[in-house]
Amino acid sequence: MHLPVVPTRSSARLALPTGPTDFTEAWLRNRRLSAHTRDAYRRDVTTWLTWCAAGDLDPLRANFLDVNDYARHLESSLAARTGRPLTPATVARRLSALSSWYDFLVKLRAVEANPVAGADRPRIDRDHSSTVGLSPEEVDRLFTAADADTGPTAHRNRAALALLADLGLRVGEVVSLDLTDLGTERGHRSIRFVGKGGKQRRRALTPGTAHAVDAYLTHRATTTGVTVTDLTGPLLVTASGGRLDRHSVFRLVRRLAQAAGLSTWSKLSPHSLRHAFATTARAEGVPLEDVQDAMGHADPRTTRRYDRDRHNLDRDPSYVIWAARARRR
């Protein structure tokens, strides 16, 4: 890619010298990102460039006032999936991606400064998440519904559910798994995958998850007329052999939740199981740092936000202090 000519103050409004795709793809190649995050960032920048084009605004000449106008536009936009206004968290995430894009352009000397840096970003309650959570009992009901399923994809669906619920994986991590990611490490059945931020990660498979995966692979091998060791490609596949996508997993979670009689089935997502993983782990006494490491969070405050039971008065440390004093007396 040829570096762009730096626009001068006296230059007229111009289109991007080499086109927005060149800038965006170079920026994405410069970042260690998962395929899902890469696609999301690409969409975020494309949305901004489309908005600029509609207003005859050269992105290389935009300032923080333009970004503020764009943020207000986003806040009044409706989400395609829900039909409701974009949440402050979604707007903040899109602006964060845009800020990273402009930081890259500053390093290329395509712009003098990052216009997002001085913009008015939405205020986010870091102690709140819009994801609908699940109790341990509700997760059990999902497994019961999955066990009752007898369709051709039943084995695969149980394996996907186990990976989401027992390991707390992100949906993008689950659908990106390949058969070669399965392994054994120090006596543990394990999986390796690329987590958020492009980090190489590994997790242990619980006995239940390993059993669900093995049952699925045995069924898949039998169906295709080969041995398990001859299977190749993605871990979770469609009926035609293609890689299972995240949208199919979304539909799976909601279908199982509806079959389980959960009243919130239409609002659930695979991420609800990730929240349930964190909440249950903490309720069962798993140290915060171990849950943080398992979920791949850089900041423990993120892990705490996933713990839906953190404000439960049953966990008030005053009880521990009182009980210790009572024992001493």
Rank of each mutant, 00 (worst) to 15 (best):
F250M: 12
T50Y: 02
D125P: 04
R327F: 05
R31V: 02
D309C: 13
R329L: 05
T222F: 07
D56M: 01
V139Y: 04
W265D: 10
H2I: 15
S96C: 11
V171W: 05
G241P: 09
G296E: 00
H73D: 02
V91K: 03
D214Q: 04
G285R: 14
P59D: 02
R38M: 08
T227M: 05
A210E: 15
R43L: 10
L105D: 01
R251A: 10
S266Q: 15
D307C: 01
L169D: 02
R123D: 04
D309S: 13
L252Q: 09
S10T: 11
L78S: 11
P4I: 12
R203I: 06
R141I: 00
L268P: 10
S77L: 08
R32Q: 11
G208K: 13
A278N: 06
I124P: 06
G225V: 04
G187D: 10
A162L: 00
F277E: 06
L134I: 07
V139Q: 05
F23C: 13
L14M: 06
R43S: 14
T224A: 10
D214R: 09
A89K: 09
A145M: 02
D166Y: 01
L169S: 07
L28F: 02
E112T: 13
P88M: 14
R201T: 00
Q200Y: 14
P88T: 09
M295A: 01
S129C: 03
H155V: 00
R220K: 08
A110V: 11
A221R: 14
S240H: 15
H275D: 01
Y102F: 14
V249Y: 12
V171A: 12
T150E: 13
E137D: 14
Q258S: 15
V91Y: 08
A35S: 15
I321F: 10
L182T: 07
A159G: 07
T232A: 15
L86A: 08
V213W: 08
C52K: 04
T222Y: 09
G241L: 09
V237A: 15
A257H: 02
G151R: 03
L78Y: 00
V253G: 09
H271P: 00
S272F: 12
L142W: 00
L179K: 12
V291L: 01
P152E: 08
G285A: 07
G242S: 14
G83M: 07
A278Q: 02
S34R: 04
V139E: 04
